[in-house]
Design a protein around this nucleic acid. Structure first.
Lengths: 94, 94
DNA sequence: TTGATATGCAAGCCGCCACTTGCCTATATT
DNA sequence: AATATAGGCAAGTGGCGGCTTGCATATCAA
């Protein structure tokens, strides 16, 4: 199980979430392509696969396998843990 | 300059934000004490100092020096960058 | 002024993380 | 059946981050 905070501590993983939030349900190869084409990131397929594994382990990405393809979906729910942890307060002047 | 995401990718730093959000304006020694007493974390003073440096560099903590003491204040503003980056969408069924 | 308090600076160690490489499995196509 | 496509597993490497240690600086108290 991977922490949501740790999952977000990587620009490549954040860009993957950007991509999925724009076009949901992409496969691993599609994500590799769009990352290279539109974001200038050129990593190996395995690198992206491992990133997707981290994101899925953190609950930020859900997957669905059909045939030999695996589709990835962005799930923003775990992000709530971040905003809920520190409720906005006024600064206490000393 | 440290990323907000990287600053949050550490349980000790997150606990420090918890502490400051409960009682704002603590000094380094106070934070060290409360971390040990109430959270079971026993790190050296320098470790906590470095954590505070990361948090300050990320804009999550602001400081104010008076005399030989330095007071630390939690600034939740940078957290907005997280929630604003991925606006909540409905999942697109294929 | 002398000593204690509160913090800063810098080097070094160690473990973890991102990335690659090579090989393997499963499904689809012809 | 044979080939291609989509993805998985595992070991190895390099670099960075967290922590410690030792020393230095600045402010307050006696």
């Amino acid at each position: 199980m991977v922490d949501v905070f740790r999952a977000l501590d990587d620009e490549t993983r954040r860009t993957i979430l950007d991509e999925l939030s724009m076009r949901d349900g992409q496969t691993l190869f599609e994500i590799c392509s769009t990352l290279t084409m539109r974001h200038g990131l050129s990593h190996s397929r395995q690198a992206i696969s491992q990133h997707l594994g981290v994101l899925e382990s953190a609950g930020l990405v859900e997957t669905e396998r059909r045939g030999r393809s695996k589709f990835h979906y962005f799930n923003p729910e775990p992000l709530a843990a971040i905003t809920n942890r520190w409720p906005t307060r006024k600064r206490t002047e000393p």
